[in-house]
Design a protein around this nucleic acid. Structure first.
Lengths: 153, 153
DNA sequence: CCAGGTGGGTTTGATTTTCCAACCCACCTT
DNA sequence: AAGGTGGGTTGGAAAATCAAACCCACCTGG
């Protein structure tokens, strides 16, 4: 069955939501950009890595760039669109640090240029307030968009 | 092979990164909390949905609550930890709206309590600045954590 | 009392993906 | 020429997904 709900969350996940895709982006952001590094650091089987990279390049999230000819060698770099996905990774990391770990066994700490440890917050860019569930209201813009589903009121 | 990199991003994805899990959360946040609604609105096969829900409940992201006895009926509600994952979904949605669509065919608009459309931004909670890749520095806290991988400098 | 409907699943068997190891090729180094 | 490295491809076994059918408890209408 197809996802009956038109939605940018679903569309984005269709692109980067497969196993390893976001881990590949993590590595690329950290600076590990070559095939063998990506395979080692993500744990992805090499054939799967090949298909994930192809998809991310086709979608314009990564680009394949030569860093040497003779011998031909290349690496995968984030595009501007790809860089914006780092926000998703930071948010995921923060959630895991808070809920999957007891304090101070965090495997990685990100430092912000302001000098403090990065504790990312998702805010409303209009008012600057932190996003809380009870402050949000969803407005469907397209058909097929009822809360209860196709058959209900 | 196991993921050789200890990382909260990987751990969080291991929990909510399987196909349909985040779509289930989307629906729960929107208010569709019953098995049949979730199956319809996410497109997940019912058996897969069963295993995803079990996992999310076991992990403390959702809870199964009775809204009627005789007949026994229940729904899946987000826990406080689950609610915090809404930030991830908002960030994914914003990315998809920006990069996967031409303006104004967005299937959903979220309104913030401040009265404006929610355009979420990920910010540093210490300084309030928006998170940009070049402002971040990663600090490994655990072994196995070099940029280039186990065999490199 | 029986027929049908609804919520919430489980079962079955076919189809896809993933996985892992091995292999391949071009190029470099010794 | 022998071996190493980067960057993959190939083959077959194992695991996950899929759709449809089935099941059960409970309710409702006739």
């Amino acid at each position: 069955m197809k996802d009956p709900r038109p939605c940018s969350i679903a569309d984005t996940l269709a692109l980067v939501g497969e196993k390893y895709s976001l881990l590949v982006l993590r590595e690329v952001f950290l600076g590990a950009r070559r095939f063998d590094q990506l395979a080692r650091n993500t744990g992805a089987p090499r054939d799967i890595l090949t298909t994930r990279l192809r998809r991310l390049v086709d979608a314009g999230v990564l680009e394949k760039a030569a860093y040497s000819e003779r011998p031909t060698r290349h690496e995968y770099r984030p595009t501007p669109a790809g860089l914006e996905l780092e926000a998703v990774l930071m948010t995921l990391m923060a959630w895991g640090d808070r809920h999957l770990r007891t304090d101070d066994d965090r495997p990685m700490v990100i430092e912000h240029i302001c000098g403090h440890e990065l504790l990312p917050a998702v805010t409303c860019s209009a008012c600057g307030g932190e996003v809380r569930h009870e402050d949000l209201t969803a407005h469907p813009q397209a058909p097929g968009w009822t809360v209860t589903g196709p058959t209900a009121a």
